[in-house]
Design a protein around this nucleic acid. Sequence first.
DNA 1: GCCCCCCTGTAG
DNA 2: CTACAGGGGGGC
Length: 259
Amino acid sequence: MQVHRPGSIRPQSSEDLTLRCRGGRLGPVSRRSKTLLIALADRSGGPDGLLQIHLGMTGRMSVVGPGQATPVHPAVTLHLGDDRLVFSDVRGLGRFGWVPEPPQGLGPEPLDPGFTVETLALALGKSRQPIKVRLMDPSCVSGIGNIYAAEILFRARIHPARPSRDLSTRELSRLRESIRSVLSEAIDAGLVATTSADPAEWTLFHREVGGTARGEAGRGFAIYDREGEPCPGCGRAVQRIRQASRSTFLCPGCQRLES
DNA sequence: GCCCCCCTGTAG
DNA sequence: CTACAGGGGGGC
C-alpha cells in the first residue's frame, strides 16, 4: 500500500495503516450509510477488520490495470497483483482507514426494502428538531446529505423548518417516498455513490456533484442552489435559509410552514 | 446548539 | 484576491 496523502487517513496514522494492511487480502465489499467497507483477511485468511472508506464529496475508487493512467489526486494505492486499487480525492474531504468492525449507531438504510413509513416514523421519533436537520443526522436516517435533504423535502412538499414530530402520516408517507425516489434517481444518474461488488463498476462510485453544487453539473437539482430562481412547480422565487449553519433551499409556495 | 478545521475549485 | 460550498469530527 502507498499513501500519497496522509491527511486522508483516519482514524490511525498512515504508518499504522500501512503496517496493518501489509500482506492482507481484500474480502467482500459492502456499504453502510455513506461508508464503503472492504473486509480484510490476514495472511492466513482469518478475518482482520475492514477498510472503511468515506468518499466525502469528491472521492473515487478506481481499479487501474497495468499501463493505465493513475487517477488525478491519488490519496491511497493498494497493489492487487497486476492491478491497483486507487482511492483518489480532489478536495480531500474523504477518509480511508482501518476499523475493527462496521460502524455502529447508524439509522436505517432508506433504500432497504424494510424502510417503511413506520420505520421512518420510528427513526424520527418525537424530536422537535427541524425535519431537514433530522434527515441529515446519520443516527436518524443513513446517507442523506445537505443537497439531497433539500431535494427530498421539496419533492415531499414539506418545509425544512417543520418540527419533525409534527409531520402528519400523509406527510411522512410523502417523505418516505421522496427519500427513496430522490436517492434512487441520483444513483441511477451516476451522481452519487452506491456499492457494487464488481470492481469493474468502481469507477462509477462517484462523479462530481457539480463542483460542489455550482457550475454546469450542479444545474441538475430542482431546488438546491437555486436561490431566486423560479420554482419548477409554481414559479415562485426559491428561498435560501440557514439551518444548523448549512444552507437550505425551499419554495415558499410549495413548502408551507403551517399546513 | 455554535464554531472551526480539514481541502480545493469556482464564483464574484 | 476572498468567500464559500461540501461531510465529518472535534471543541466549547
